[in-house]
Nucleic acid binder design. Sequence first.
DNA 1: AAGATAATGTGACATTTGTAATAAATGTGA
DNA 2: TCACATTTATTACAAATGTCACATTATCTT
Lengths: 207, 207
Amino acid sequence: MKIVVVDDDVLVASALKTILEAGEDVTVAGVGGDGSEALELYRQYKPDVMLMDIRMKNMSGLEAAQQILKEDPEAKILLLTTFSDDEYIVKALKYGVKGYLLKQDYTSILPALKAVCTGQTVFGTEITVRLPGLIKEEKRVDWKEYEISEKELKVISLVAEGLSNKEIAGELFLSEGTVRNYISNILDKTGLRDRTQLAVHYLNAAR
Amino acid sequence: MKIVVVDDDVLVASALKTILEAGEDVTVAGVGGDGSEALELYRQYKPDVMLMDIRMKNMSGLEAAQQILKEDPEAKILLLTTFSDDEYIVKALKYGVKGYLLKQDYTSILPALKAVCTGQTVFGTEITVRLPGLIKEEKRVDWKEYEISEKELKVISLVAEGLSNKEIAGELFLSEGTVRNYISNILDKTGLRDRTQLAVHYLNAAR
DNA sequence: AAGATAATGTGACATTTGTAATAAATGTGA
DNA sequence: TCACATTTATTACAAATGTCACATTATCTT
């Protein structure tokens, strides 16, 4: 497993290198000190995982991550931070970062790294606690008057996000035909005429 | 590391057991087949990590997780699923589940397990892709940004009332084809794909 | 296990919608 | 008037949508 470590603080960076290389099957291919170096190192080594501090002078780890992911959406980037800031977490998630850990517990970095390497996403304990607060509340509309099932409601909400039948099918693991049937039923029940009216109705009801 | 595995499907459950025990330092203390068993097994063994299918007859994995976490908020529960449903992910997160994986890639279960064991949270690839969509975000559509004429705006607002092309044509004394052209242009300018997306954007922007 | 019930899927079909190329009508300024 | 842009219309076409009747599959009940 080829790793590149990037940290502002030279001490931390080399400490990380040492810790990581203690793990079997781990090679630290490069060590950098700021965002732009990160970019270069990534291009040069194409590491399996990029371990990067988020707060760095010059170019921040977040920006560097954004850059790298733009060049290579498959890049696996694990961000390290000393404190957990919602703003950062959200951005990092949107960019497609594969993990977000607190620097505190060094022992948990290695397992996290391996999990990330298999394509999974890992969040540190403190980060996880914050996650639920960041989640959108599902818009609940009272369709009680009609008898709308949970699944139908789900379909409606996806229609109201502008998804096509095919996309909804993919999202819910149904066939496109089934989605059409669902919508047809819903329209029948609600007396609406097409998906656009459904979306409008749904969004207007959610106020 | 002491694990309890719970899966509806006996074959899968034993397969998991085998896979896990191949890992060093892993003991599968118990194997169960549904939610209520999960609860008992957890009480009995207090495993380091609980690996549980989400879709099971009788009591679902999600419910079981909720129960267990109510009794022991420190419980580390890793849910397995064959499909990823936003609804479930959100709920699982709120309950405090420590991970959410797809059954597909068995090889990645072990690393995930270890990461969870250190207190981190792990999401499978497919799940991660869905996460950003679940995050709260500010909606902003700036119609000024595109050069939308008065007439076009009128068309948009009618679309957002759920009118068909024919109806809009009648309303604005245009031919149906012209309305279609209008909408086609608008979609082109805005980068949207169809009238439903247009309606959704319009309504969301009006907040 | 058998039957009922619900959920999901299929295929055929008509309709609506979106795209594109092109043209007629309209207005506007030099 | 001419040239030019704008608005509106027409046509043909491809794609998505909605409806319906009917299989197929799961799930629950008994």
